[in-house]
C-alpha cells in the first residue's frame, strides 16, 4: 500500500515545479528505502507534499513561494480554483492538445519536407520553436505524446494543494489513483513517462529554461534517493 502510494506520488517528479524539494524530503528521512517495506513505516505529510521538514520560518517562506507559484502558473488560489484546474487537466491541457495537432501535421511527412516546413516558418519564431520540439521528439515519444506532462502537473497540483490546505489528504490519494491508471495505460516505463513529461515542460515554456528541464529530468531518473531508482514501473 505504502509503496503504491509512493509510486502514485512519484509521477509529479518531472512536473514543471521540479523534483528538488521532493528529493530533499526523501533524503531527509533516515533509511527511507530500507524502512519502506516494514509495517511500521508511515507516510508523513512531508512525503505527501513533497517537501522536506522545515522550521516554522522556512515553512512560512516556502508556503508563500508555493502560493505565488500556484497563483501565477495556474491561477489557483483557493480550493475551488484547484478543483476546477484539476478537472480541466483530466480533459487535456491546451499544450497537450496543441502538441497532438502539430504532431498530426508532420506524422506522415518525410524528413526533408519537415525541414522545409520549419524553414517556411522563419517569420514566426515561437511557432517554429514548438514545431522543432514536436519534430525532434516525434520518434522518441510514444503514441500518447506529451500526455505525461498533464499527469505530472495533475499530481503536482494535488500535492501542492494539500500542502496549502486546499485539498484533503484522502481526496489526494483518490485522485492519484486515477492519474496512475492513466499513466500505466499510456506508458511502459519511467524513462518513457519522464521523457514525455519533460518534453511537455519544454513545449509549454516554448523551449526556454532547457538546462533546468534537463537537470530535473536527469535528477528524477538518476538521483540515488529518487523514487524511480527504487520503484519498478510494473509494481
Amino acid at each position: 500500500m505504502i509503496i503504491q502510494r509512493l509510486w502514485d506520488l512519484s509521477l509529479s517528479m518531472t512536473a514543471a515545479y521540479g523534483s528538488s524539494k521532493d528529493i530533499e524530503g526523501l533524503c531527509s528521512v533516515k533509511d527511507l528505502w530500507k524502512r519502506v517495506g516494514s509495517t511500521e513505516f508511515q507516510l508523513t505529510p512531508q512525503l505527501l507534499y513533497g517537501m522536506p521538514v522545515y522550521n516554522r520560518l522556512e515553512q512560512a517562506g516556502v508556503k508563500e513561494e508555493v502560493e505565488i507559484y500556484l497563483r501565477s502558473s495556474f491561477q489557483v488560489h483557493n480550493a475551488a480554483n484547484l478543483h476546477e484546474k484539476l478537472e480541466s487537466l483530466l480533459i487535456g491541457s491546451e499544450y497537450v492538445l496543441r502538441f497532438i495537432e502539430m504532431r498530426k501535421t508532420i506524422s506522415a511527412m518525410p524528413y526533408r519536407e519537415r525541414v522545409r516546413k520549419l524553414q517556411a516558418m522563419k517569420d514566426d519564431e515561437q511557432e517554429a520553436a514548438l514545431y522543432e520540439i514536436v519534430m525532434q521528439y516525434d520518434l522518441a515519444l510514444p503514441e500518447a505524446g506529451i500526455l505525461a506532462f498533464d499527469i505530472a502537473t495533475y499530481v503536482s497540483l494535488c500535492r501542492l494543494g494539500a500542502f496549502m490546505g486546499f485539498i484533503e489528504e484522502t481526496d489526494v490519494y483518490k485522485r492519484l489513483e486515477q492519474s496512475t491508471s492513466l499513466a500505466r495505460q499510456h506508458f511502459s516505463s519511467f524513462e518513457q513517462y519522464a521523457l514525455s513529461s519533460a518534453v511537455g515542460v519544454l513545449f509549454s515554456n516554448g523551449n526556454v529554461n532547457k538546462e533546468e528541464v534537463l537537470n530535473n529530468y536527469y535528477s528524477s531518473l538518476h538521483h540515488p534517493y529518487s523514487y524511480w531508482r527504487h520503484l519498478e514501473w510494473a509494481q
Binding site: I23, Y137, L195, A198, L214, Y217, H222
Partner: peptide, 21 residues
C-alpha cells in the same frame, strides 16, 4: 549541437548535476 533530453541524459549528463540537501 542542440540540446536533446534523450541524448544528453545518456551521454552528457553526469552525477555532478545531482543536487543534495
Amino acid at each position: 549541437s542542440k540540446m536533446d533530453l534523450e541524448l544528453d541524459r545518456i551521454i552528457h549528463c553526469t552525477d555532478e548535476m545531482l543536487k543534495w540537501p
